[in-house]
């Protein structure tokens, strides 16, 4: 993102916004959480990452819910309950969507999408699956 001292509202402009990749504006989940690092007393806290995933959402609803969702994720999830953390340096622009300098298809954001394609939709005709036939 351009270094112009431009001010941003982290809640209004980032949190709960759609994440998309740079190449094809491919949806990659939502900005479910933002990680901030507190450093020295003389240095302002630094924004270091955006987080996306069900455990983050569960933690927001209730701290008690988070371990349950993580456990479910480890048992059943394709991502093994791991939260997808995108370094803040990968954020390219903030507009209607948050554009990331990441390839969606190689990121954990689409792990479920790929799993479903390999294990479910390929067996159903008419799904337009690249693995079909």
């Amino acid at each position: 993102m351009a270094d112009g001292g431009d001010e941003m509202h982290l809640v209004r402009d980032v949190l709960d916004k759609q994440l998309v990749d740079h190449a094809g504006h491919d949806p990659m989940g939502m900005a479910d959480g933002i990680v901030i690092e507190v450093r020295d007393v003389n240095q302002p806290p630094r924004v270091i990452a955006i987080e996306s995933g069900f455990p983050v959402l569960a933690r927001r609803v209730s701290p008690k819910l988070e371990p349950i969702v993580r456990w479910l994720g480890r048992r059943l999830g394709v991502r093994r309950g791991i939260v997808y953390r995108i370094p803040w340096s990968r954020v390219r622009s903030l507009d209607v969507e948050v554009e990331l300098d990441v390839d969606a298809d190689r990121s954990p954001a689409k792990a479920w999408e790929h799993w479903l394609c390999r294990h479910v939709t390929r067996y159903i005709p008419g799904s337009g699956n690249f693995l079909e036939s």
């Binding site: 939502m30 479903l116 394609c117 479910v120 939709t121 390929r122 799904s127 699956n129 690249f130």
Partner: peptide
């Protein structure tokens, strides 16, 4: 739209697998 997945009835189910599920 709530969880930020690919969506659209004009997409093939393979391109919006969770939506189709």
């Amino acid at each position: 739209q709530t969880f930020g997945w690919a969506w659209g009835e004009n997409k093939k189910p393979a391109d919006a697998a969770r939506f189709s599920m």
